[in-house]
Design a protein around this nucleic acid. Structure first.
Lengths: 209, 209
DNA sequence: ATATTTATGGAGTCGCTACTCCATAAATAG
DNA sequence: CTATTTATGGAGTAGCGACTCCATAAATAT
């Protein structure tokens, strides 16, 4: 069964849609990124997407469904810096250094809203939005898991000692990342965030002692 | 001119109010703390405050005015740990160590919602709420200023070297604090936050090298 | 006592928010 | 061709958000 609205590349039945679904989704993603879920109104969303209500519901189903898709678009788009910075050869510490610098850049990049679409979303929603809140928490957890996996790789490669608390290191760098997202929202610039990242790396186990 | 609703302790003219204004404010503060400004509905607010709409508007003026008062109540109440931990004798590093431990405790204290009422508020509001957003940014800036002042005290006392970048250190610890607020909202417990705080202190300049 | 001031209860208002309906358009399947 | 499927335009809607009005209550000032 086809997912409604996904449309085949070639010969789909019925009237073809008159707009670019991916482009519309990316426009919506930017609005959610800037305003959060509740702060993004339906009218603003369909305006930037260039859609009528009926076209919107036909293609995306609901505001919440759109939001979940937009999170996916963020993760594979502007949020792609995260796995990319962590990947790559070299010691785990180098990977986390790249991560801090890439985070500083991404959170202050003028092509998108300041900060991060993931870090601060779904933290203050009403009880009847518990599902979205859980969803965002899981997305955030996933980023910590990626950190842990990269740290374990460092242990396997011998650049981190065996008994080290990788979960603790991941917790710390996740916390710094989330905090950087807040600072970016409040106007901190790239250099400021970079220096915060450098300082965070000073907490890397066994660096200076 | 008296501020409307403040009422004198002794002989105010007119019918005396039938409720405890401070208690009602504290109830409202908890709702805002838990849900944020937009997430706290008028109906829920007046319900926990035990007020009718007319009593509410008579005593507090508007939802936004109530919010600003609630922020004040937070800062002098549950948020009081912040200046308290920073104050006190000893090296600046000890003060920041106390701050990290007190933050871990406050953000996970079961008597209130998880996290911080200040750290994550007003980050995703609509353009027509720019005033509230600015207000919250200023409150956050104030906490960084308190950190800088305490660091300068350390420089004067000789426990921090003259040329040190106090603004940078404050930026870093503010970032860690904001990040801890996010982690607390996502369910991180006190021990977890404490260990993050300990690790942050490892970044203190000149500790290990 | 009368006037003035402030508080309260409760119904009512107005705009916005997310969503729905339906007639019509435009494609393919057979 | 007809039937079927999907997309669109545009009007409409139910509910809820914050707020308002007004008659009445309860205090003080003179």
């Amino acid at each position: 069964m086809m997912i409604k609205g996904e449309g085949q590349a070639s010969k789909a039945r019925g009237r073809p849609r008159l707009f670019d679904r991916t482009a519309a989704l990316n426009q919506a993603m930017r609005v959610f990124w800037d305003r959060g879920y509740e702060g993004a109104t339906f009218d603003e969303l369909i305006a930037v997407m260039g859609l009528s209500p009926s076209s919107f519901y036909n293609a995306f189903g609901s505001k919440e469904a759109l939001y979940r898709e937009a999170v996916g678009a963020y993760l594979t788009g502007p949020g792609g810096f995260f796995p990319k910075a962590l990947a790559g050869a070299g010691p785990a510490k180098d990977a986390f250094s790249r991560l801090m610098m890439a985070t500083a850049e991404a959170y202050t990049d003028e092509v998108g809203p300041a900060g991060c679409m993931i870090s601060l979303a779904g933290l203050h929603d009403a009880p009847d939005r518990a599902d979205l809140r859980d969803f965002m928490r899981e997305v955030r957890e996933r980023s910590r898991t990626l950190m842990i996996e990269r740290l374990n790789e460092g242990v396997r490669n011998g650049d981190l000692s065996e008994g080290i608390d990788v979960a603790q290191i991941a917790e710390f760098f996740e916390t710094v990342s989330r905090g950087m997202a807040v600072r970016a929202r409040d106007g901190a610039d790239r250099r400021t965030l970079e220096k915060i990242g450098v300082m965070a790396l000073d907490a890397w186990p066994g660096v200076r002692a």
